[in-house]
């Protein structure tokens, strides 16, 4: 099934079987491997992308369901919030292996866009869908707060 997806502001023509999750369209069809596979059942958040500004799990989102949406992946995440998040991530040396960090950054960016000064509870609620097996959580929490200060 041939459709056009708008990804990071660019139209991409895609031919994939109906029902193919956005994750695999990004990774296998378009070669955009920044979005990661971690569980396939929306339990780990490694595959998080933004659809019309909302963080979603691309591993359970059929690609044809987001045909008319603006999709932003880690490769295209930009703007003052994403920059501040990345800056704080570097400043606090958050990542270890880095595999989950694309998803962490997409979730954290979405949080800071809507919440200028997230509390610990806000961070827990927004970020608990993103597993980090290296357990960089303490640094992630600190970095989100630092980024909030930098951007607002």
């Amino acid at each position: 099934m041939a459709i056009t997806l708008k990804i990071n502001g660019k139209n991409e023509n895609v031919t994939a079987a109906e029902g193919t999750p956005l994750l695999w369209v990004l990774r296998d069809h378009l070669g955009m491997t920044g979005t990661k596979f971690g569980c396939g059942v929306a339990q780990c958040g490694a595959c998080t992308v933004h659809v019309d500004g909302t963080p979603i799990r691309s591993c359970i989102t059929a690609h044809e369901d987001v045909e008319d949406s603006d999709i932003v992946t880690i490769e295209g995440a930009s703007g003052k919030v994403a920059d501040a998040i990345r800056g704080a991530w570097e400043e606090l040396a958050v990542p270890q292996c880095g595999y989950c960090q694309a998803g962490q950054i997409m979730s954290a960016t979405a949080l800071l866009v809507t919440n200028k000064s997230p509390s610990d509870d806000d961070i827990d609620a927004a970020m608990s869908g993103n597993i980090c097996r290296c357990a960089t959580y303490v640094r992630i929490r600190k970095a989100i707060k630092e980024a909030a200060k930098a951007v607002y």
Binding site: E90, A93, Y99
Partner: peptide, 12 residues
């Protein structure tokens, strides 16, 4: 690796 992984660029 940090600069790559926060931009989705590292190759795993």
């Amino acid at each position: 690796t940090i600069s790559d992984v926060i931009r989705g660029k590292g190759t795993f």
